[in-house]
């Protein structure tokens, strides 16, 4: 066996790959489900917090800013570990899926709130005044005049941040979640062969590379400049 053969036998072993392909695919499905749950709940929660903050109720805003700061400061892995290993002591044992989902959704919520808020405050004051001068109420102005403009400004930074946080689904493997990396690692230790890991790596690229390329396009299309 040449060294090249040894290399392909280790890293791209067809027999091993075939055997564990279903596992990796199952991992992909779970990763997609987790990612969808994180993105939907995280963005929605972030938007709701930003809108609440626009109401301008002092104590509520302090609370929002604190929660946002907290989840921007904590590494997502620390949040996952805290929820998965810590919460059971408080009598609540979330599954690996729920722990990972909650953690990443909280982190995305924090970043999304910050970005939505920046979009709202960067909309010129004159837009508020013009809308209010025609009799639109606060909520109507926010909904029909400010948000559509703010959302456009937020698309590019929000896309990038969402991708970065969604990649964190791989962290679930630390709490034994059977997503792609978890499946690949256990397949690797069962087969004493790194081929499943290469498949796992490829699976991530299949999922995320198109999104990253699409984000590049979005960035040039909806940049912060107007």
């Amino acid at each position: 066996m040449t060294s090249w053969d040894r290399f392909t036998d280790a890293f791209f072993n067809a027999r091993v790959m075939e055997k564990y392909l279903p596992d990796i695919l199952a991992g992909m499905v779970l990763t997609i489900e987790l990612a969808a749950a994180v993105i939907a709940s995280g963005l929605l929660a972030g938007l709701v917090l930003a809108l609440l903050r626009a109401l301008g109720i002092r104590p509520l805003n302090w609370l929002i800013v604190f929660v946002v700061d907290l989840f921007r400061s904590l590494p997502p892995l620390v949040v996952i570990v805290l929820i998965y290993f810590g919460l059971p002591s408080a009598g609540f044992s979330p599954s690996a899926f729920v722990s990972t989902w909650m953690s990443l959704a909280l982190v995305l919520m924090a970043f999304a709130e910050e970005i939505f808020w920046a979009g709202i405050v960067s909309t010129p004051k004159g837009q508020w005044e013009a809308a209010r001068s025609t009799g639109l109420g606060f909520g109507q102005t926010l909904l029909h005049v400010i948000l559509p403009q703010a959302l456009r400004l937020t698309i590019a930074p929000l896309t990038n941040r969402t991708i970065a946080i969604t990649k964190g689904t791989a962290l679930g493997t630390v709490v034994a979640l059977h997503e792609i990396l978890g499946m690949a690692s256990s397949a690797m230790s069962n087969s004493y062969n790194p081929s499943p890991l290469m498949m796992g790596a490829a699976a991530y690229l299949v999922l995320f590379l198109p999104v990253v390329v699409a984000a590049r396009w979005v960035e040039t299309r909806f940049s912060w400049k107007r």
């Binding site: 990649k167 791989a170 990396l181 690692s185 995320f208």
Partner: peptide, 15 residues
């Protein structure tokens, strides 16, 4: 940018 850093790390460490 598409590759989760943890996957990269495991690839280097275990692969």
């Amino acid at each position: 940018r598409a590759f989760p850093p943890l996957v990269l790390l495991v690839l280097l460490f275990a692969g």
